[in-house]
Amino acid sequence: MAHAKRKASTILIKRAYDDASPDDGYRVLVDRVWPRGRSRETLKLAQWMQAIAPSDALRKWFGHDPQRWDEFRQRYLAELHTDEQLARMRSLLADAAGQPMTLVYGAKDTEHNQAVVLRDALLRLQQG
């Protein structure tokens, strides 16, 4: 029997240093390292998905340098395109069960961070 079409989740991104909101829905920390000075209670996470974050080597190479953004984005998308990471992304979408999902990240730069890339990849994946 074919799987019923799941309702697409709205996928938001939010800094770990911004207050959680009930509108955030299913909150997932998508950083490899825990954000400094933030407690589990403050973050109000449904889960911490370290393994979906960029590899340590890629994260360190990028160093949040906007001039490396395009290359970082391509490299991270390549990391996300493995069978293992695709399975993690599908699991994440299933866990959200159609409710809004907020990808939580610690970087200061709101435009050049892994959550931006991951959101785009998740949106493409759920569109089929």
Rank of each mutant, 00 (worst) to 15 (best):
M1Q: 07
A2I: 05
H3A: 14
H3T: 12
A4F: 01
K5D: 12
R6F: 01
R6Y: 02
K7S: 10
A8Y: 00
S9L: 08
S9R: 12
L12A: 01
K14N: 02
R15G: 06
D18E: 15
A20I: 00
A20R: 07
D23T: 11
D24G: 12
Y26D: 05
Y26C: 15
Y26K: 01
V28G: 01
L29M: 06
L29H: 02
L29E: 03
V30N: 03
V30W: 00
R32M: 02
V33L: 15
W34E: 01
P35A: 03
R36D: 00
G37S: 05
R38Q: 15
R38V: 03
R38E: 07
S39I: 06
R40K: 15
E41D: 14
K44Y: 02
L45R: 03
L45M: 07
A46R: 09
Q47D: 06
Q47S: 09
Q47L: 14
M49C: 11
Q50T: 13
Q50K: 15
Q50E: 08
A51C: 00
A51F: 00
P54K: 13
P54I: 12
P54M: 10
P54W: 11
S55A: 14
S55W: 11
D56P: 10
A57F: 04
R59H: 09
K60A: 14
F62A: 12
F62R: 13
G63D: 06
G63E: 09
H64G: 01
H64S: 07
H64M: 03
D65N: 15
Q67R: 14
W69T: 09
W69Q: 07
D70I: 03
F72Y: 13
F72I: 14
F72M: 13
R73N: 13
Q74N: 08
Q74E: 15
R75S: 09
R75I: 01
Y76R: 12
L77K: 11
A78S: 14
E79P: 05
E79W: 04
L80V: 08
L80G: 08
L80A: 06
T82S: 15
Q85C: 11
Q85F: 06
Q85S: 13
L86T: 04
L86R: 15
A87R: 14
A87P: 00
R88I: 07
R88S: 08
S91M: 11
L92A: 02
L92F: 08
A94N: 11
A94G: 08
D95R: 12
D95S: 13
D95H: 09
A97I: 04
T102H: 03
T102Y: 02
L103T: 05
G106R: 13
G106D: 07
G106E: 08
A107W: 09
K108E: 04
D109R: 09
D109L: 09
T110D: 11
H112F: 12
N113C: 06
N113A: 07
V116N: 04
V117N: 05
R119I: 00
R119N: 05
D120P: 01
D120L: 10
A121P: 14
L123M: 13
L123E: 11
R124M: 09
L125Q: 10
Q126M: 08
Q126E: 08
Q127Y: 06
Q127E: 15
